[in-house]
Amino acid sequence: MYWSGWPLDRIVVLFVAAAYAFIGIQVTMFHYRQNFHHKSMWGPVLSSPVFFLAGLALALLNLPWLAVLFQILMWVGVAEGFVGFYYHFSGVGVRVGGYEPRNFLIGPPVVLPLMFSSLGALGLLALYWR
């Protein structure tokens, strides 16, 4: 496997796959710490490994049907991140004191779901850039 023959979009897909693996571990630890008290917490925990495997398969095999599957999954990732942002932002608001700066520090991480969405957007950018 020679990297010099790979186009940039294929390398970016591989990066997105690896990043979903790492962010999936972080999301799992955060949601496990909160005992999965809301069903929506399972979404990114279960989808991150699927995104990783689909991206890895697309980067290594580069089959057209995998590109379609990866595209659909990246749109799901973008949507999941926005839903997570809503829940995390709302979660900060229900803490004592509401939307005070300290609640953004100790409450649910508001930026992490946006990173989840951003990875999906980067994956879509790699596919549409071709």
Rank of each mutant, 00 (worst) to 15 (best):
V13K: 03
S90Q: 02
A19L: 13
G98C: 02
L63Y: 08
S90M: 09
Y20V: 07
L46R: 13
R130A: 11
A57D: 08
A17R: 02
P7F: 13
H31A: 10
W75P: 13
Y20N: 03
G77I: 05
R10C: 07
W3E: 14
F22A: 10
F116Q: 04
G97N: 06
M29P: 00
Y2K: 15
M29T: 00
R95C: 05
S117D: 04
A19W: 10
L124H: 12
L73C: 06
S40T: 04
V16P: 04
L105G: 06
Y128F: 15
V13L: 12
F82M: 14
S47D: 02
A67M: 07
H38S: 11
Y32D: 00
D9W: 10
F36Y: 13
V27P: 01
V92T: 13
F22I: 15
G55Y: 10
V50L: 11
G97A: 11
Y128M: 12
L105A: 15
H38K: 12
G24N: 01
M74L: 04
F85R: 03
L66C: 11
I25S: 01
F104L: 13
V110G: 02
V27A: 15
P49A: 11
S40H: 08
A59L: 14
P108K: 14
I25C: 01
L53P: 07
P64I: 08
Y99N: 03
G81E: 10
V83G: 15
L61H: 10
A54V: 10
V78F: 13
A126Y: 06
F51V: 03
H37P: 05
F15S: 15
G91R: 05
A21I: 07
N62D: 14
Y86G: 11
V45M: 15
L60K: 03
P7W: 13
W3F: 13
A57F: 03
P64C: 07
Y32M: 00
G5S: 14
Y20M: 05
Y20A: 05
G43W: 12
R102K: 07
L105M: 14
E80T: 11
F36D: 03
K39Q: 04
F89M: 11
M41F: 14
R10E: 11
L69P: 01
A121D: 03
G98V: 10
R130W: 11
L119A: 11
V111E: 05
G43M: 13
S40N: 12
G123C: 09
L66E: 02
F82R: 08
N103K: 14
G120K: 04
